[in-house]
């Protein structure tokens, strides 16, 4: 199987869906309200091929020593490297009881991948500030399910770390989008997905951010990372 070139994926693994969200119980209702900070939908096949960004332009936004982006890219495979520019939707208001703690709100990330091989999928996420790692999280996807001719891997409702929750909250206190974007210029996340048994690198996704104009909701562009 070969994937069309309009989304994050290789012949071994494809990102189908990615959401970072906050969820809370409504006072009036029994159902939960979910607000998505960022979201990648399953991509329609009619999308044009991805533009390329030279990976050297963003080396310094991620750790540079001991398994940083440069080392990872040198090891390859190059077709497994992608960049996502998110315009995050921060247009939700914190409730009074949530100002001191999470107040019962749940901050999480859910993602879904698919591919032709049944493997144990591990995901390392590095949160970086000024290119330096501040938090690292290692997760293993649920065992894959065979669905419609391919294996589907899920990491559902993975809790956001305290650093990220506090970061989002502090960002929201800034009065202007320009100020938020200025802070976000030095905030990045690097995700590396591997076959846990062989340690083969399957996908490496670099995330960079701005804040969405509030009426638009979360948006994104996806790029291939390359090097001439």
């Amino acid at each position: 199987t070969s994937w069309p070139g309009s989304h994050i994926g290789t012949e071994t693994l494809r990102l189908v869906e990615f959401t970072a969200f906050v969820e809370r119980q409504s006072e009036r209702d029994t159902c939960k309200q979910q607000h998505r900070f960022v979201h990648i939908d399953p991509t329609p096949t009619s999308e044009p091929p991805l533009e390329m960004v030279d990976v050297r332009q963003i080396y310094d936004k991620f750790p540079e020593k001991g398994g940083g982006l440069r080392d990872l890219y040198d090891q390859g495979p190059p077709q497994a490297f992608f960049l996502v520019k998110f315009w995050a939707d921060l247009s939700f208001s914190l409730l009074e009881e949530e100002l001191g703690g999470t107040g019962g709100a749940f901050y999480g990330v859910s993602s879904r991948y698919e591919g032709p091989r049944a493997l144990t999928l591990s995901c390392t996420s590095k949160v970086c500030s000024f290119g330096k790692q501040v938090v690292e999280k290692l997760e293993t996807a649920e065992p894959p399910h065979w669905e419609d001719g391919r294996f589907v891997f899920r990491m559902q409702r993975s809790p956001l770390c305290e650093y990220l929750i506090n970061f989002i909250r502090k960002l929201q206190t800034l009065p202007e989008k320009l100020m938020m974007d200025s802070v976000l210029e030095n905030f990045t996340i690097l995700q590396v997905l591997r076959d846990q048994e062989t340690q083969e690198l399957l996908l490496c996704v670099a995330f960079v951010f701005e804040v969405s104009a509030s009426e638009r909701g979360a948006q994104h562009h996806i790029y291939r990372l390359g090097r001439d």
């Binding site: 390329m52 050297r56 332009q57 310094d60 520019k85 638009r216 948006q219």
Partner: peptide
């Protein structure tokens, strides 16, 4: 200048990098 002293706006990035997509 070191790369980390160069603002993102001055780097060689596609024009689309600065254009927030319209909602589908």
């Amino acid at each position: 200048a070191r790369p980390d002293q160069v603002p993102m706006r001055k780097r060689q990035l596609p024009a689309s990098f600065w254009e927030e997509p319209r909602p589908a």
